[in-house]
Design a protein around this nucleic acid. Structure first.
Lengths: 346, 346
DNA sequence: CTGTTAGCGCCTTCAA
DNA sequence: TTGAAGGCGCTAACAG
């Protein structure tokens, strides 16, 4: 790999001059500039970002930590963030925490060592010591939380309007005639899951339905476990105690529930109506077509990166935490269709 | 951000000693080591990888370029590559080319500037000048191509056994009774698409079926365009000329075809049997359940990264190009089920 | 075992 | 407008 020195030699100028034409910060006369550019092409020279970063203490790189890149919600977020970053000349390093606290700690440490200028974080579901995050903030490394936001730590965040979105989903099920609605949530140590649950119960109350403890099913985020849980709930209850609808507060839960449906021979919407947060599959090619509360994933990533960059470049001098809540969209499909009137409810 | 010097001061030792305890390359006496470690913790010191990289000219970072992170095949590859990389102490930077040649060029240049030690590349579908890649190889930057491999350039590569996998898919459709099988492929300037197409025609010939020009539908990789194409083909042909099965050589094509099916009111397998490369959706929750040739995506990423790392660390002194072809798996589902015998074929 | 120091490649004053 | 030189933080000789 040729260095700036080689370029200078070949062009017959000093390294300073080469640097000037590369950065464009200082005017260089036409003839010298052309000679330098010719030398750059001839050597196939690529400025060493490592050295530049060391000198300027700017890496122009952001980091993003997500639970799992293979869950389709996250690639969309990353795409949004990457687009925003590139638009302003920054690169993005994406890594997976697997929702493990220890791994997240290591990754934060790694990103710090790599001197990323800011961090986008979807905090791991595993309960984690607060200081993991406060240490970042204490050292004045800009950070924006996405999707999930930490309790009690004032930090910039961007996510969907959790409560409103969930309320919209459940209200829709109610409007379709559902009365006994089971709510399937992820771990309730996550604030967004709690807020979504609140939105659900809110919708119930507004409809004059008393939320029942036994119809709130909380679990982890592994579809297999959720499926098992759900099967148990469905098997153990006498048919008349069975919910007539199920709402899931996240896509992983939905996968679990649908798997349980299949294993129990339950059809939706015929036997149980269904709706969930997050698109599970592409478009409307497949059935059952699932009624979905769609989060603006790309937008979440994009906005979060913009805020982060504003912080980095000192544009956002807002002193408190910036909180952005984006609206979700309810996409009504077959899984929540009003069932044909049954004998009990003519 | 504290530097190694601050740590040395606080610990009352020289920077050399601090460096020794960090890298572990030189023995340091117990008491000094403890003092240094205490200072590191107290300052929350994170070694500056940028400076280290400059000094050692090793970034311990790999780059991977994929067409689109939001296509589920690629996150799996990235996961595999990331796992292999981390296992050996490397980080991975993932970027999207959007299948554009120019963007790919910029990204290659960016990765070079960032001094990644090796590159994993899924080449962009856009036809591209050879020298984009040869320049990398000429400068002795290790590179491994995944999924798609370039024509005529000898470079390490890892991908599925394209021809065999495609042949397996089509042979299965034939075994289910299909005779007029349409093949939907992506751009044929991609070698893997060509190989898959060969596999398809191979299967036909082995079954004594003459491949028909009009039943080979090549298109780009945008589902909308493919759907339009497919609608045209289906609409313009008289019912008896209609294929009785369709095989797609990639997931994007399959999405297009299924969308066309829906728009034309065609059911699978009842009206037309169907099978495709690449899983379109999770599990078997949805119908139609699609018969799929499943690529070992994670494994492809993992193996490619391993080969790359072997090259970087000089372990692989194989002089020619290393070529790994992994077998695919045929997952038979409802979409290819043998249709009930019709009147014509009792 | 510990300390000292050169220099990785680049940018940025500062002088000419 | 151009060139010369210091130094970013770190590692790896080398010297003690």
């Amino acid at each position: 790999m040729p260095s700036i020195k080689k370029v200078a030699e070949l062009a017959g100028v000093s390294v300073g001059t080469v640097s000037h034409v590369i950065t464009g910060s200082v005017n260089v006369s036409e003839p010298l500039r052309l000679k330098v550019q010719a030398a750059i092409r001839e050597l196939n020279y690529h400025p060493n970002h490592v050295a530049r970063s060391l000198k300027t203490s700017k890496t122009r790189t952001l980091g993003i930590i997500v639970p799992d890149l293979t869950i389709s919600f996250y690639p969309q977020i990353i795409r949004g963030a990457e687009t925003a970053a590139r638009k302003r000349g920054y690169s993005l390093i994406a890594v997976n925490s697997d929702d493990e606290g220890e791994r997240q700690r290591d990754l934060l440490s790694l990103l710090r060592s790599q001197r990323v200028e800011g961090i986008l974080l979807v905090i791991a579901a595993a309960p984690l010591p607060l200081n993991q995050l406060t240490r970042i903030l204490d050292d004045d490394i800009p950070m924006v939380c996405l999707d999930r936001t930490p309790d009690r730590i004032p930090v910039d965040s961007v996510c969907v309007e959790d409560a409103e979105a969930a309320e919209m989903g459940v209200a829709h099920l109610i409007a379709q005639g559902a009365r006994r609605i089971a709510i399937v949530t992820g771990p309730l140590n996550l604030k967004n899951e709690r807020r979504r649950l609140q939105g659900c119960t809110q919708a119930l109350r507004k409809a004059g339905i008393q939320p029942e403890e036994e119809l709130i099913w909380s679990a982890n985020l592994r579809p297999e476990d959720i499926a098992a849980d759900c099967r148990r709930h469905l098997a153990h209850s006498p048919p008349e105690a069975r919910p007539d609808a199920i709402f899931c507060t996240n896509g992983q839960s939905a996968l679990g529930v649908l798997r349980a449906f299949r294993e129990c021979g339950i059809r939706t919407p015929e036997d149980i109506a269904f709706a969930t947060f997050d698109e599970l599959t592409v478009e409307d090619i497949f059935t059952p077509a699932i009624t979905t509360v769609v989060q603006p994933a790309y937008e979440i990533g994009f906005r979060a990166a913009e805020i982060l960059l504003d912080r980095i470049e000192g544009i956002a001098n807002h002193t408190g935490a910036i909180t952005v809540r984006l609206p979700a969209l309810l996409r009504v499909r077959a899984s929540s269709r009003k069932p044909a009137p049954s004998l009990q409810n003519p």
